[in-house]
């Protein structure tokens, strides 16, 4: 927040340059500790999972692959130990199979990491495709209004009538066998409706503003007005809702895999792991806990990030904090740059 600077104030020799909108939002986001920690944790989980089992042909640092069959050790019980030695534990060590083994001896750590990788892939691809399609449809509908708007919005209505899980199942049934990437792309093409409606609403109000009028008078083309003038002003809505779509994408993918319409064996999904080990719950509970914990952790963290972004982009949503009020009152001169 810039403070008003009195021009003839002798105690203020240097004037502060006004902050750009982007920096302001970024700083507001950084002030939300929970969201920042969530970003770091999500990135940490992704990097850990990817480096553990590698990406495509590049091998990771973990010794077992997610498809390898290994001999059963100790009924496949997990060997991960986090309890430090001075508390009577065995110290921090991974052991042979940190997350245990499944019924046929596959290393569960590698499988869980592969599941995280796939969840993340689906989340990003689905989020990006849904956002791009949604932004284009919403922008065109909101900018041109009239017949174009009516047609596009009726198409949106047609797709929004079908619940996400139902259309997801059908799409997954069709494309699920072709791998996680294809599945994510196709799911993305059926998840854009919410963003399209939001973006259209933003465009309908923004297109009446003076700066659009000015751009049009200056001879800017429609596409230039849409993408260079209006879209940057609507970017907050897009970023926030695409983050929230990503959080629900994780849940959608795992739910579809649980039903058998998502990622298929021998590839691994966190939902698939839970569904195929549901019956072993009483004997080998770890087969259930690890994937469950990572689904919840990923979705929860991404939701926190989305919430933090919403607060950063929309000052009305910002939480009132007495501490911040006190900090900002006595020292208007403090500079955080």
């Amino acid at each position: 927040m810039t403070t008003p600077v009195l021009a003839d104030n002798p105690t203020m020799p240097e004037t502060k340059a006004p902050e750009s909108q982007g920096r302001l939002i970024f700083r507001r986001f950084l002030s939300n500790k929970l969201a920042v920690v969530s970003v770091i944790l999500v990135l940490g989980i992704i990097i850990f999972a990817t480096s553990a089992i590698g990406l495509g042909p590049i091998p990771g640092w973990w010794k077992y692959g997610y498809k390898d069959l290994n001999p059963q050790l100790n009924q496949g019980a997990p060997t991960l130990s986090l309890w430090p030695t001075w508390l009577g534990g065995k110290g921090f060590s991974f052991g042979e199979h940190p997350f245990g083994q499944d019924r046929i001896g596959k290393d569960y750590f590698a499988m869980t990491m592969r599941g995280i990788q796939n969840s993340f892939l689906v989340m990003i691809v689905l989020g990006v495709i849904a956002s791009v399609v949604g932004v284009v449809v919403g922008a065109v509908a909101g900018y041109y209004r009239g017949t174009v708007d009516a047609i596009l919005m009726r198409i949106t209505d047609v797709f929004i009538v079908i619940p996400a899980l139902v259309i997801g199942s059908v799409v997954g049934h069709w494309f699920g066998g072709l791998g996680a990437l294809v599945l994510a792309i196709m799911l993305g093409f059926f998840s854009w409706m919410g963003i399209a409606r939001l973006v259209r609403g933003e465009f309908l109000s923004l297109r009446e503003r003076e700066f659009v009028e000015a751009a049009r008078v200056a001879g800017a083309s429609d596409s230039r007005i849409i993408f260079k003038h209006i879209l940057p002003n609507a970017i907050g809505v897009v970023i926030v809702s695409s983050t929230l779509i990503m959080a629900s994408a994780i849940l959608l993918e795992t739910a579809l895999s649980f039903l058998g319409y998502g990622i298929r064996s021998p590839d691994v999904s966190l939902g698939l792991l839970i569904s195929s080990n549901e019956s072993a719950f009483q004997t080998r509970p770890w087969l259930f806990w690890w994937p469950g914990a990572f689904i919840v952790a990923l979705a929860l963290l991404v939701n926190f990030v989305g919430d933090g972004l919403r607060d950063a982009f929309d000052p009305r949503h910002q939480r009132f904090s007495i501490r911040k009020m006190r900090e900002s009152l006595p020292e208007p001169d403090e500079d955080q740059t």
Partner: peptide, 11 residues
């Protein structure tokens, strides 16, 4: 409520 949001219903 955040937690429930992130908890898949099959879980």
């Amino acid at each position: 409520s955040f937690f429930l949001y992130s908890l898949p219903s099959f879980l």
